[in-house]
Design a protein around this nucleic acid. Structure first.
Lengths: 182, 182
DNA sequence: GTTGCCATGTAAGGTGTTACATGATTTA
DNA sequence: TAAATCATGTAACACCTTACATGGCAAC
């Protein structure tokens, strides 16, 4: 999947400029793209060429011109089509696991230090995920079902980090247990 | 992180050719790179230029010539350095969650069909993860601690998919409950 | 004698990143 | 007056993917 459908999704709520989209992406960890201009403006040009969006240039009394993009009917159909398409299974790309694969070369002290760092990292992510759910930075919630969906998305993130946290804590306990008996 | 350190890791076990590495990557979901020649041969050239590996050309009586790569001391040091470096926290890139963000546009039937597909996908991944742990396709296990580490890596994968499965099942129950009372 | 494996590589393109360029306006 | 925000975009590059090119050898 690419950023294309996320852009179509945002535009299905309301017309937006590239700059608006940039801020939306940059401001949420959930929409995990960095929100860099290159990608967003290029995507908008492509969507425009494909006839999925149109833009209207606004010249405010003060400040730079704005290109406000909105969905066409074709764009709305493309989005709906994608929403109905078969979901991909998530794939884990955790470089820490690759690190562990050869971590037997480290001493037990070094290994535990690594675990401690990872635990700390994951804990921070868990806190941030809970905080993002509480603050509801982006929250359409125009229907009860939409609010429920967004809650479930947030829970997925929180659950992921909590699961990861439990795993690393279990590892640390086992490592400590081993070192006592050794 | 890039594939570079995984290559150094494999070479820290024993000298290997590009083709060997290709098969190792292609044969395991855990080392999540596709195992395409382009990346592997290019990586080997780069590692060679950086002095982290050396190669020896073997001409067997029959068959094509093989470039057997092995770690240099600098390569070993580079690997160890990376093993000690601060672990990155894993970041979730699940396109299904993005799909859900706008799924309020779908009917409840369409939504549940989507959930069912996702549940099936994740269940298959969980089965495969358990199977990979059982089969131990790649399994150094030269020390007890190494075997333990590899077990924990496998458990991480299994736990991830089981967690995801529980989440989607919870969602489906809630959706079904809502539709009954509605 | 065609298919598949061994073994090396190249070409082209998708997707994403950081950093830079430009210029006006607003805030400290 | 210096910095931040608004707003558009380009340049360069990192990483990864599929598909293709080349050739010998083995198995069926």
């Amino acid at each position: 999947m690419s950023i294309k459908y996320a852009v179509l999704g945002f535009l299905s709520w309301q017309p937006l400029t590239g700059y608006d989209l940039k801020k939306l992406f940059a401001g949420s960890t959930f929409f995990y793209w960095s929100g860099n201009s290159n990608q967003i403006y290029k995507t908008l040009v492509q969507l425009h060429q494909a006839g999925l969006v149109v833009n209207q240039i606004e010249q405010p009394e003060s400040g730079p011109a704005r290109k406000v993009y909105s969905l066409t009917e074709a764009g709305q159909a493309e989005l709906r089509n994608w929403l109905l398409s078969a979901p991909e299974s998530p794939q884990l790309r955790n470089s820490f696991l690759v690190q562990l694969a050869w971590a037997d070369q480290l001493t037990s002290d070094e290994l535990d230090a690594l675990f401690a760092q990872y635990e700390h990292e994951v804990e921070m992510q868990a806190v941030m995920a809970r905080e993002q759910k509480r603050r509801k930075q982006i929250n359409p919630a125009r229907t009860g079902r939409e609010a429920w969906l967004w809650g479930m998305i947030a829970d997925n993130w929180i659950g992921f980090y909590e699961n990861e946290l439990a795993w690393v804590q279990r590892m640390r306990q086992q490592l400590a247990g081993d070192r006592e008996t050794a």
